[in-house]
């Protein structure tokens, strides 16, 4: 049986809650337990907030991953915002361009197993995060 992927469009801070709830629901379906569910939901919250703060709008897609020997959850956060000039700086803990804590992106990386960010100035940013079932 194929678990459902979910797509949440992010247009305001209220959508952050929806995105993390959908992510948590899918992760639960996939068999993640308590602390992993919280880590996944928190990571989604951070990348969703990044969209709201920097790009105004975008989307978050959560989907199951089925590989031969492992399963997990894939979270893709995409926006067509201004993009990030200096990714290394953006990934630096405590660095923020908008008076935030500067915790969001580096924090999300710590919470997940795999984290990748691609960004083009003027085009937008895509964050891809994975967490595997152990």
């Amino acid at each position: 049986m194929e678990n459902n992927e979910a797509c949440v469009s992010i247009n305001s801070a209220a959508d952050i809650v929806t995105a993390r709830q959908k992510g948590r629901a899918l992760a639960l379906e996939l068999g993640f337990d308590g602390s992993d569910l919280t880590l996944i939901a928190t990571a989604i919250s951070e990348v969703a907030r990044n969209i709201v703060n920097h790009a105004k709008s975008g989307e978050i897609v959560v989907s199951p991953m089925n590989h031969s020997n492992k399963r997990g959850i894939l979270v893709v956060a995409r926006d067509e915002g201004p993009g990030i000039k200096d990714i290394a700086k953006a990934m630096q803990y405590g660095y923020s361009t908008n008076k935030g804590l500067g915790v969001g992106l580096p924090g999300a990386k710590w919470l997940m197993d795999e984290f990748d960010i691609e960004s083009k100035v003027g085009k937008g940013t895509t964050v891809t995060m994975k967490k595997w079932l152990h």
């Binding site: 602390s35 569910l37 880590l39 928190t42 803990y93 804590l101 915790v103 924090g107 710590w110 919470l111």
Partner: peptide, 14 residues
Amino acid sequence: IQPDVAFAMVQLGL
């Protein structure tokens, strides 16, 4: 603050 939430906060460095 729930145990799982505390764990995630620590992971985030909060």
